[in-house]
Simulated assay, not measured.
Amino acid sequence: MDWNETGELVRRARAGDPAAWRALVDRYSRLLYAIARSYGLGGADIDDVVQTTWLRLVERLPRLRDPARAGAWLAVTARRESQAVLRRRGRERPLTGHTPTVTGPHHAVFGRELAGSVAAALDTVPPRCRALLELSIASPRLSYAEISTALGVPLGSVGPTRTRCLLHLRRRLGVA
């Protein structure tokens, strides 16, 4: 399946084509299960995350701006749903390593400015790079195989493409 085929499947699913829905579910369900598992969820919680993620796609399908990026959208949604399950269960795990502490308003302003700069720089990278970077950032626990499946690119190209995309982004941010 090539990069643009996901977009075509989404367009057909919008039109009510059950074969397109089956193809989307076949293509992305393993990824969604892997994301939920990566949050330490099990059994029914994983099933709930996957089912809710598909429900969110059904709800937003008519308004999905870029059908070709549906895989990245599903991955981000599964991550958010997994976090929501953890919050509801009161089991959200703290981040490991050093977590910076906000000590004043200047830190909040700097953080917003940095986020804005990164978002603006992401807007300048090619669409495939943007999708790969968004997926990598949104779900850092995904394997290259899962990213390959989500984006419909060869497994061996994920690492080198990611490296080139990060270099492009760093140049745009002036940190390369």
Rank of each mutant, 00 (worst) to 15 (best):
R112Y: 05
M1I: 12
R91Q: 12
G97E: 00
A36M: 15
V76R: 07
S139D: 11
W73R: 01
R162Q: 11
A108C: 06
V158P: 09
H98C: 00
P67I: 10
E146Q: 13
V175M: 04
P126R: 15
S117V: 04
A36Q: 10
T101R: 15
L135T: 14
A176E: 08
A138G: 15
R11D: 02
W54K: 01
R63E: 08
A75F: 03
D26E: 11
R128S: 09
R56P: 01
D48C: 12
E59A: 13
H168I: 13
L135A: 07
P126A: 15
V10E: 01
A108M: 13
P62Y: 03
G71K: 01
G43Y: 03
Y39W: 15
E113N: 09
G174W: 08
P160V: 07
L95H: 03
T124A: 07
V109Q: 04
R37C: 05
P154L: 09
G111A: 15
C165K: 06
A120H: 10
R128W: 09
R22G: 10
G174S: 05
I147W: 01
P18R: 15
H168Y: 12
R162P: 02
H107Q: 12
E8A: 14
G71D: 01
G43P: 00
A121L: 13
G40N: 05
Y144L: 02
S139N: 12
L135I: 04
S38Q: 11
T53Q: 08
I147G: 00
A70V: 15
R170M: 13
A150R: 06
P140K: 02
R170E: 14
L41C: 08
Y33P: 00
T52I: 08
R91T: 08
R12V: 09
D45R: 07
N4P: 04
D47H: 09
L24M: 09
P94Q: 00
A68S: 09
P62S: 08
H106R: 06
D47Y: 01
S82F: 13
H168V: 15
R89E: 13
L114V: 15
V76S: 10
Q83D: 12
A84I: 03
S82D: 13
L64R: 06
D26L: 04
T163K: 10
V109S: 06
S136Q: 14
P127Q: 12
A115S: 12
A150P: 05
L173Y: 03
W54S: 03
A23W: 00
R170I: 02
A150L: 11
H98A: 08
